[in-house]
Nucleic acid binder design. Structure first.
Length: 736
DNA sequence: GCCGGGTGGGTTTTT
DNA sequence: CCCACCCGGC
C-alpha cells in the first residue's frame, strides 16, 4: 500500500519521520488522524513490530477509529491503541502485585470515588460545611494532576486543624483505595507513573516492550499523562505528539497546553511540523471559526484555509424559546435529509447535556431516530449502579465501596447503626470490611437480630461467589437477581417518584450483560472495566442523528452540524468566569464545535429557556458578535424575548428571514451598553451596563433615562423596546 | 430499620 | 425540573 500518496508535503514529512521526537501542530480538520495512522503503518512497514507501538488517544471512540484505519492500512496489524486510562489499566493489571494490588482490581468512576469521599468524610468526622465532599474530591483531583513544581494545597475554607484534617483525609483515601483493591481514574495515572519512577526494572521492561509512542490531542494531556509518556520513551526519544492548542478544552481537568512548551524543552532538536490546510470545512465555516479565536490572548495565530470553496454561509437562527428551537432543529433534520445529507452525517451539539432533552422530545415526536453519545443516562441510574456493585464485589471481594453500596440493598435489616458498627470494627482490627464479613467476625456488641441478618448476608455472598465462579457477566447478573430478590424489592416499593421504570432498566442491563457475554465473549472483569472506562456502548449508529456535547464531539466531523443554545451563560458558560482564562476556553469550545462541520453549520439561539423548571430570559452569546457578517446569515426574530409582550402573540414564533445581523435596524444582536431603549413609563434611555444572570439573579440592565435617573431593570419583566442597538464597539461595560 | 414525603439546591464539560 | 438528603411515622 502506498502510504505517502495523497499526502501534502507537511503530512508526508511527519509520516516519514520515523525515529526521534516529533511534534505535529495540526489545526482542525488538517488530516491529523491521517498522519497518525499513516505514520503507524509506516513504522510497521519499516520493521517496527506492531506490538512495540503505542498510540494514546483521548477518547475510546478515537482509539477505535484509529484501530480500524490502521487495520485497513496494514492489513490487520494490531498496535496498542488506547486511552491513557485504558493503557494504564492494562499496565497495572500486568504489574499489579508490584504495587500491592491484585490483578482483579476494580476501577471507581467519578461517582464511586465521590461515595468513597463521603464515607471517609463521615468516618473522619470532617466538618462538611468547611469541606464538602465535592470540594474534597476537587482537591484530590487537582492535587494529583498538578505539576510537581506547582504543588497544590487545600484552597477551600481554613479552619484550625485544616492541615491535619486534610492530610488525614488524603492518606485515608489512598489507603482505602488500596485495601479495596481499587483505583479511581486519577490514580490509574498517578500510580502507573509512581510505579515506573520507583521501579527501574519495571520501567526497563516497558521500554523494551514499547519502542514508539504517539500521543494524540496532546494539548489535553495533564502532567501525569505527559510524565508517563516521557518515562516510557525516555530511553529512545521516540515520542510523537500531535495536537492543537486552539482545541484545548480540558484545562478544567488538569490538562495543560504548556506540555507543548515542555515537549520542546525536553526534546531539543525535535522535529516540528505544522499542518494548516484544512480538508474538512468550507471557508465560510472556517472564517467564522477563526474569528471566534481572534480575541484569545497569547495565541499563535493560525491561518486555516481550505480549497473547498466558500460553501454556504453559517446560519444563525433565533427562536422565541427552547421549545421552538427544539421543534425547528428536529424539523431541520428532515429538511437536511431532503437536501441530501445522510442522517448519520448530521449532528446536534450542545454545551451542556441538559439541552439534549427538549431536542430529544422533538425528535421522538417526529420519529427521527437518534443516538446520544455519553450522557449520564444509563450507567448513572441507581438500579444499574446497585447491580454493578454486586458484580464488582463478586469480581473483587475486597471492593469496600461496592460492599457498602449493596450491604442493605435490597433492605435486609442492616441499617446505618449496624453498618457503622461493622465499619468501626473493621478499622479497629485494621482489616477490610469485606474480610470481617467473610470471616463472620461481628463485633460482640451487636444485637441478636443484626447478627442474624449479617449471617444471612454472609451466606448470600458465599453462595453467590461459589455459584458465579468463573461465570460471565450475564450469568453472574442472573444469579445476583435470583438470589437477592432485587427485582421483587423494587416492585414492592411504591415506585411512584421514579421517572423511568427501574425494572425496565434492570431488564435492559441484564440484556446488555448477556449480550456482552454471549456475542462479544467478554468476561466479567473486562465487562466491568469497559462499563466504567467506556461509559456508554456505541451500538448501531446507522440512520441515526447524533446528539452530543461539544466536548464529546472533539475529533469527530459531520457534514452538517447544528449547535443549540448559543447563548450567554451557556457559551460562554456562566461558570467560565470563575476560573482565569475561562472565557478563552469557551471560545476554543465554540471553535471546536464549528470546525466539526464540513458543509453546513447552524447556530441556534433561544430568547427564553427553561432551566431548573423555570423559564428564564436568555441573551445571544457575546461570541456571535465576532462572526464576520459576510460569512453568516441571520434568521428569525432576533429581538430578545423580553421585548415581546406575551399576550400579543403576533411576533411570537415568527421566522422571517432577515438581512444579516450587521443591519443597523436589527433590533438586536445584543442589547449592549450604549443601546437606546424605550420604556413605557420612563421613556427613552441609554443602556449603561448589562448584568447577565448570575447568583440566582435575573439578567438586568442599568439604564439612564432622559430625566437623569438611573434604573436597574430586570430584562425579563421590563417592557423595553430597543430603539437603537448602538455602536459596534463590543467592549462596553459588561458586568459578569 | 424501612420507606415515603417534604424540602432545598443545582455537577459544564469526561476518562 | 430532578436529585440527594432529612425527618417522622410505622
Amino acid at each position: 500500500m502506498d502510504l505517502l500518496g495523497g499526502l501534502n508535503p507537511e503530512q508526508r514529512e511527519a509520516v516519514t519521520h520515523l525515529h526521534g521526537p516529533l511534534s505535529v501542530v495540526a489545526g482542525a480538520g488538517s488530516g491529523k488522524t491521517r498522519v497518525i495512522t499513516h505514520r503507524i503503518a509506516n513504522l510497521i512497514a519499516h520493521g517496527v513490530p506492531a506490538e512495540a507501538i503505542l498510540g494514546v488517544t483521548f477518547t475510546n471512540r478515537a482509539a477505535k477509529e484509529m484501530q480500524e484505519r490502521v487495520w485497513v492500512l496494514t492489513g490487520g496489524a494490531g498496535p496498542t491503541l488506547a486511552t491513557f486510562h485504558g493503557f494504564c489499566a492494562r499496565l497495572l493489571r500486568i504489574e499489579a502485585e508490584a504495587i500491592g494490588r491484585r490483578v482483579d482490581f476494580t476501577i471507581y468512576d467519578a461517582s464511586d470515588a465521590l461515595d468513597l469521599v463521603k464515607t471517609l468524610s463521615k468516618e473522619l468526622s470532617l466538618d462538611e460545611d468547611l469541606a464538602s465532599p465535592w470540594s474534597l474530591m476537587d482537591h484530590l483531583s487537582s492535587k494529583r494532576n498538578a505539576r510537581p513544581d506547582e504543588p497544590h494545597t487545600w484552597s477551600g475554607k481554613r479552619w484550625p486543624t485544616v492541615d491535619d484534617d486534610i492530610a488525614r483525609f488524603e492518606a485515608a483515601y489512598d489507603e482505602r483505595l488500596k485495601t479495596s483493591n481499587a483505583f479511581d481514574f486519577d490514580s490509574l495515572l498517578t500510580e502507573s507513573v509512581r510505579l515506573l519512577e520507583t521501579r527501574p526494572d519495571v520501567l526497563a521492561r516497558w521500554r523494551t516492550r514499547l519502542t514508539h509512542v504517539l500521543v494524540d490531542e496532546f494539548q489535553d494531556t495533564n502532567w501525569p499523562q505527559y510524565r508517563l509518556v516521557r518515562l516510557l520513551t525516555g530511553g529512545s526519544g521516540n515520542l510523537c505528539v500531535t495536537g492543537d492548542p486552539d482545541q484545548s478544552i480540558y484545562t478544567w481537568r488538569g490538562a495543560d497546553p504548556r506540555n507543548f512548551v515542555d515537549f520542546k524543552a525536553d526534546h531539543p532538536g525535535a522535529k516540528e511540523v505544522v499542518l494548516a490546510q484544512n480538508y474538512r470545512s468550507t471557508n465560510h465555516i472556517l472564517r467564522c471559526a477563526s474569528a471566534v479565536m481572534t480575541p484569545v490572548s497569547g495565541r499563535v495565530p493560525k491561518n486555516l484555509w481550505s480549497d473547498l470553496g466558500d460553501g454556504e454561509p453559517v446560519r444563525i437562527v433565533h427562536f422565541t424559546d427552547d421549545r421552538d428551537e427544539a421543534q425547528a432543529v428536529a424539523q431541520a433534520v428532515l429538511e437536511f435529509e431532503g437536501d441530501g445529507f445522510a442522517r448519520d452525517e448530521i449532528a446536534i451539539m450542545f454545551r451542556v447535556n441538559a439541552l439534549s432533552l427538549p431536542v430529544e422530545r422533538a425528535l421522538l415526536e417526529r420519529g427521527v431516530r437518534y443516538r446520544v453519545v455519553g450522557g449520564p443516562e444509563f450507567f448513572g441510574r441507581q438500579e444499574v449502579k446497585d447491580l454493578l456493585a454486586y458484580l464488582r464485589l463478586l469480581a473483587n471481594p475486597l471492593d469496600g465501596q461496592a460492599l457498602l453500596r449493596i450491604i442493605n440493598v435490597p433492605a435486609r435489616g442492616l441499617g446505618d447503626r449496624t453498618v457503622d458498627a461493622l465499619a468501626a470494627e473493621a478499622r479497629r482490627q485494621g482489616r477490610p470490611l469485606a474480610e470481617i464479613i467473610a470471616a463472620r467476625a461481628w463485633p460482640t456488641t451487636l444485637a441478636k437480630k443484626a447478627t442474624g441478618s449479617l449471617d444471612a448476608f454472609a451466606s448470600l455472598l458465599d453462595r453467590l461467589s461459589d455459584e458465579t465462579e468463573g461465570a460471565g457477566p450475564g450469568a453472574t447478573l442472573e444469579a445476583v437477581l435470583t438470589h437477592t430478590g432485587y427485582a421483587a424489592w423494587w416492585s414492592g416499593r411504591a415506585s411512584k417518584g421514579h421517572s423511568q421504570d427501574p425494572l425496565r432498566n434492570v431488564g435492559q442491563f441484564l440484556a446488555f450483560a448477556h449480550e456482552a457475554e454471549d456475542s462479544l465473549k467478554i468476561d466479567l472483569r473486562t465487562f466491568l472495566e469497559q462499563t466504567t472506562l467506556l461509559g456508554d456502548r456505541d451500538g448501531d449508529d446507522r440512520d441515526k442523528v447524533t446528539l452530543l456535547t461539544v466536548h464529546a464531539a472533539k475529533g469527530l466531523e459531520y457534514a452538517a452540524v447544528m449547535l443549540v443554545g448559543v447563548e450567554d451563560d451557556l457559551i460562554p458558560h456562566a461558570n467560565a468566569r470563575l476560573s482565569p482564562g475561562g472565557l478563552d476556553e469557551e471560545r476554543r469550545l465554540l471553535h471546536v464545535a464549528m470546525t466539526r462541520a464540513r458543509r453546513r453549520l447552524v447556530l441556534t439561539v433561544a430568547g427564553r429557556r427553561v432551566r431548573f423548571g423555570r423559564e428564564q430570559a436568555a441573551l445571544p452569546s457575546r461570541f456571535l458578535r465576532d462572526l464576520p457578517s459576510n460569512d453568516v446569515e441571520t434568521y428569525g426574530d432576533v429581538r430578545p424575548a423580553w421585548t415581546l409582550d406575551e399576550d400579543e402573540g403576533e411576533t411570537s414564533g415568527s421566522r422571517v428571514v432577515r438581512e444579516a445581523s450587521d443591519d443597523p435596524d436589527d433590533p438586536l444582536l445584543a442589547l449592549r451598553p450604549g443601546s437606546t431603549v424605550r420604556h413605557p413609563e420612563y421613556g427613552n434611555g441609554t443602556v449603561i451596563r448589562i448584568r447577565s444572570r448570575h447568583l440566582g439573579l435575573d439578567a438586568s440592565a442599568v439604564v439612564r433615562f432622559g430625566d437623569g435617573s438611573e434604573r436597574t431593570l430586570i430584562l425579563r419583566w421590563a417592557k423595553l423596546m430597543v430603539i437603537d442597538a448602538g455602536g459596534d464597539d463590543a467592549s462596553g461595560d459588561y458586568d459578569f
